[in-house]
Design a protein around this nucleic acid. Structure first.
Length: 303
RNA sequence: GGUCCGAUGGAUGAGUGGCUUAGUCACCGGUCUGCAAAACCGUCUACAGCGGUUCGAAUCCGCUUCGGACCU
């Protein structure tokens, strides 16, 4: 029998976790997280990691598996996750992948181009340059190194310009010449499910969930990692806002309001991302039976 | 009953006759191959209502409605 990866995506707070447990139990599948924050240790509340009961109900992978100080990215994730999935498929016919990080899901399902690691010092240097000279100047620099990419990049976006520059300089080749954008084929079938619900309801759920996180002790959790605030892993909704509060920049109430707002914004961006991927089939998270029917039908079709 | 002040887009808030889509925030839409819960982009043309003045009014005048303050 062929192996199947059931991908469950959706906006934050849209019911992915509960659904994934149900689906995993139904298919006797382990779960692998595709969430770019849940695999860090020490921040279970703010990242809404599955709770103890859920973790006991189903075998989970990539939950609290990495240290906050670890430099992790979608490329490394692709390698590690792929390997783990292969191992899991030796004992299981199904694996459920849940999470809301679009790029990580893409990396897992379609793969990333093989680009060499960029020297950390170079990256830092470029970031300093960016700070000093601004995006426009850096974009100009990119124009001379990779005119083709210059034409298509979002030149206002420091992150994009920087990445292209670091690859150009790091490899001595134009970034665009190294990007193939090829979709890898995986040795297993992939079925993509996305959860959605009425927008107003989703926002209500998000707001409520933030309140619950506060009750569970998000503030204390944020306090415990405050000294690590510069880490990329903590450039995360729920922590940055509290860090600002600890700094005295904003009030506690403001911090909480901002966490809600930023979570809503994040949810919207996630929806935008998943909408673009037409392989997703959308469901209300409560439609468990319908989802299983869909998966079963899809499995037959793919066999 | 009288006097005065105010009424601008979802919120806030400029703008006192003739390119102001002011700005900000929210909402909404979007971008996306290595920091992605990140980073970035776009849209949202309103001036309480009616009438008048004027070549032209959010901006001036009158009335109406609503809100606030004060007076008797």
């Amino acid at each position: 029998m062929s192996k199947t990866l059931i991908v469950i995506a959706g906006a934050t707070g849209s019911g992915k976790t509960d659904l994934s447990i149900n689906i995993a139990l139904h298919y006797h599948a382990p779960i692998i997280s595709t969430d770019s924050r849940q695999f860090y240790r020490g921040i279970p509340i703010g990242t809404a990691q599955p709770d103890t009961e859920q973790l006991q109900a189903v075998e989970h992978h990539f939950i609290a598996s990495h240290d906050l100080t670890q430099d992790f990215n979608c490329g490394a994730y692709e390698q590690e996750a792929l390997q783990r999935i292969e191992e899991l498929f030796q004992k299981h016919d199904f694996v459920v992948a849940v999470g809301g990080s679009g790029l990580y899901i893409k990396a897992l399902c379609e793969g990333m181009d093989d680009l060499p690691e960029v020297d950390a010092a170079l990256r830092e240097q470029l970031m300093n340059d960016m700070k000093q000279h601004g995006v426009d100047a850096m974009a100009e620099r990119l124009r001379s190194l990779d005119p083709a990419y210059y034409e298509v990049v979002d030149r206002k976006n420091p992150a994009r310009v920087l990445r292209a520059l670091e690859v150009c300089i790091g490899t001595g080749m134009p970034y665009s010449s190294l990007r193939t954008g090829e979709k890898r084929t995986r040795p297993f079938n992939i079925i993509k499910i996305a959860t959605d619900m009425d927008r107003a309801l989703l926002y209500e759920r998000i707001d409520r969930r933030v309140d619950i996180m506060i009750e569970q002790g998000l503030e204390q959790e944020a306090r415990s990692v405050y000294h690590l605030r510069k880490l990329n892993s903590l450039q995360t909704v729920g922590y940055r806002e509290f860090f600002d509060y600890f700094d005295g920049t904003i009030s506690r109430e403001e911090a909480i309001e901002l966490i809600k707002r930023n979570s809503r914004r994040y949810a919207k961006r996630q929806l935008t991302w998943f909408r673009r991927d037409t392989e997703f089939e959308w469901f209300n998270p409560s439609e468990k039976e319908k989802i299983i029917e869909y998966i079963d039908a899809k499995v037959c079709e793919l066999k």
